[in-house]
Simulated assay, not measured.
Amino acid sequence: MHYGTLCKANMAAACARSLGKVGWTIVQSPVLRRPGNGALLPGNTGSRVSRRSYFGGGKTGARSGLLWSLRGGGSRALSCAFLVGGGVGLYHTVKFYWDQQRHLAQEQAQAAPAGGPSLSASPSLTLYQYQTCPFCSKVRAFMDYHGLAYRVVEVNPVMRREIKWSTYRKVPILMVDEHLQLNDSSVIISSLKTYLVSKGSSMSDILRCYPELKSVNDSGKEVTEYSNKYWLMLSEDETAAVYPDKGMQKEEMKWRQWADDWLVHLISPNVYRSTSEALASFDYIVREGKFGALEGVFAKYIGAAAMFVIAKRLKSRHNLQDDVRQDLYKAVNDWVAAVGKKRKFMGGERPNLADLAVFGVLRVMEGLEAFDDMMANTKVKPWYRRMEAATRNHNDRS
């Protein structure tokens, strides 16, 4: 089947499912600074989703996490702190200006050719990210597992000068050969996987199958979603090779979306559950992220206080229990039950895209009390250790 025809057919089928979700709302919430579509513990949260009815028609949401929160409620608190420290702000403004000019000059020098970009045999991949963002972590897990070489550019979560050149203001952003920009963690993963399986297709053609859908949420803010982002754009033969058993594709898509729409929302309320945990989380964020010395002090103490308050609001928004650990435990055990006792991974002998997504989200909590509690009080540990080994050893090196 001609690729363009295949793309249109897949788009038509998936758009019917996507159009009903255009009204997603986004709420800024925290995630650890390693993150995935953009936050120190990401924070584009979505519409209210009941933990009891997620698969029963509950509305989908956007992402949540430590870094997201910094960009939302947390970032507003940090901005106030920088205004108070006027002298510090002036210094950083001048410094950031010159850094930005150098970055823009580099981007202009690497402009795409008139004929349009396509992925080369050995593409240059550059990931703009927050280290503790769960959506960024998802993308890294995918690329590590497949043995793809990539360069990381850590983005300052306050000024975000490293992505000033982009009209898309979230992370992750993946630049391919320095001129083709991929946005949204799930789009990045689906398009890269499609390219790896369908060797003859150009990345620019593949990206046309994931069109932007813009809408206005209940707060009057314009939000962007992407149609078909959980689909792989493959021919029938390629699809059969990737998903040999009936139901595998549907199962993978369901749990990938679950990771984005539900699991991510449990991270911030758990890592900011108490004042001590909030401080520990921001200590980790500052240590792993890209902050100046004074920025780090503001981020740790002002950010931790702000995120502690925001985490309480998120608990209410998502109908979480008073003990938010119980929601985390239930979600993780639901995942383990879905994998089952007879499979090493949801993908069978090897991880599939759902395995990589769930692993990427959960690992942003590593080193924090919430992670230790999860490992001790759920059945996830054997699966999680297998996923660590699979990504570390590049088990599906391309």
Rank of each mutant, 00 (worst) to 15 (best):
Y3C: 00
G4H: 01
L6Q: 11
A13K: 15
A13M: 06
A14P: 04
R17D: 10
R17C: 10
S18G: 11
L19A: 14
W24P: 00
I26L: 11
Q28Y: 07
P35E: 03
P35I: 03
A39Q: 04
P42Y: 05
R48H: 06
R48Y: 06
S50H: 08
R52C: 02
F55P: 03
F55D: 07
F55C: 10
F55Q: 07
G56Q: 12
G56S: 14
T60D: 07
L70G: 04
R71T: 10
G74T: 10
S75C: 09
R76E: 04
R76F: 04
A77R: 01
L78Q: 06
S79Q: 02
L83H: 10
L83T: 15
G86M: 11
G87K: 10
V88Q: 08
G89W: 12
G89I: 12
G89N: 12
T93V: 00
V94D: 03
W98M: 13
W98Q: 13
W98S: 14
R102M: 12
A112N: 01
S118I: 14
S120D: 10
L125R: 10
L127I: 01
Y128E: 08
Q129I: 13
T132L: 15
F135K: 01
K138R: 14
A141L: 02
A141M: 01
D144E: 15
G147P: 02
A149N: 11
Y150C: 11
Y150A: 07
V152N: 05
V153E: 05
V155L: 10
V155A: 09
I163T: 15
I163K: 02
K164T: 15
W165D: 13
I173Y: 00
L174F: 08
V176E: 08
V176H: 06
E178P: 01
L182Q: 05
D184R: 03
D184T: 03
S186Q: 06
I189Q: 09
L192N: 06
K193C: 08
Y195E: 11
L196T: 06
K199E: 07
S204C: 14
Y210H: 09
P211K: 13
P211C: 15
E212L: 13
D218F: 11
E222F: 06
V223H: 01
E225R: 13
Y226L: 04
S227P: 00
N228Q: 09
N228G: 05
M233D: 08
M233K: 05
L234V: 08
D237M: 14
T239E: 15
A241V: 13
Y243F: 13
Y243W: 06
Y243K: 08
Q257N: 15
L266M: 05
S268T: 12
S268K: 01
S281K: 09
S281R: 10
E288K: 06
L294P: 00
G296C: 13
F298H: 12
I310T: 03
K312W: 07
L314D: 12
H318G: 04
N319H: 14
V324N: 01
L328C: 02
N333V: 08
V336T: 06
K341T: 01
G347Y: 00
R350V: 07
F359T: 01
G360N: 03
G360M: 02
V361I: 11
V361Q: 06
R363G: 02
G367Y: 12
D373T: 02
K379D: 08
Y384G: 05
M387E: 02
A389V: 03
N393I: 00
N395R: 13
D396K: 04
D396I: 04
D396V: 02
S398K: 09
